[in-house]
Design a binder for these strands. Structure first.
Lengths: 102, 102
DNA sequence: AATGTATATAACTATATTATTATATTATAC
DNA sequence: GTATAATATAATAATATAGTTATATACATT
């Protein structure tokens, strides 16, 4: 039980950083190189690399090397179900909150 | 776009703490008082209160007061869809990882 | 071999989070 | 009103994370 909670919390922690969310979102339509990601996500190359290595460690992304380039992609597309569901719930709660303020 | 990412990341951050996960999970079957939660979750009362106030601020739990007691409950049951889906995905990835080690 | 480009890692500072302890608040019971 | 119980808040130390800068590695091209 305690183990499972640690495990869940740790999983969510991986998703709790805006740059990591941006990286995952950017990979929705397929693989991208590190520099492309840095451009799309608008963050430093070094920081992107650091976050990619966290996502890699948590098995959320995979990569393939091609010459000088490293292309990253999503390990399991189901992660987008989670992201979309989270957004839906969060939005719903926000709406409820707004309504209650009227 | 950036706003939405910050929003999502922030939402996941709320779920990235094992005590907060434990609190939410403990409220699956209905409301509980703070002391009950402290007992179930096996954490200090003060720490439970702190985490409850974070969950309250993020609108994930609501409460009602009855005399000396404060009973907390889940704002939107859909949060369990998210928790269960997260666990499913994480488990799946773990299984894939284990298989690939054979 | 020397240079350039893509990516990764290391070192580091600032800030945030965790978890504990002490104390305050609020309501009840006597 | 005083003591007691439930909960909340404040203060704080330890640790983790964020984000920047500098440097290293690895491959490609000339």
């Amino acid at each position: 039980m305690k183990q499972i909670r640690l495990f869940k919390a740790d999983f969510f922690k991986t998703l709790s950083n805006p740059i990591r969310i941006a990286i995952i979102d950017s990979l929705r339509n397929g693989e991208l190189g590190v520099n492309d990601l840095a451009a799309v996500v608008e963050a430093d190359q070094a920081y992107i690399s650091q976050q990619l290595s966290i996502l890699k460690a948590k098995n959320l992304v995979k990569f393939r090397k091609e010459g000088n380039f490293v292309y990253y992609s999503i390990t399991d597309q189901d992660i987008f179900i989670l992201l979309d569901e989270a957004l839906r719930i969060a939005k719903k709660q926000l709406t409820t909150l707004q309504d209650s303020l009227k």
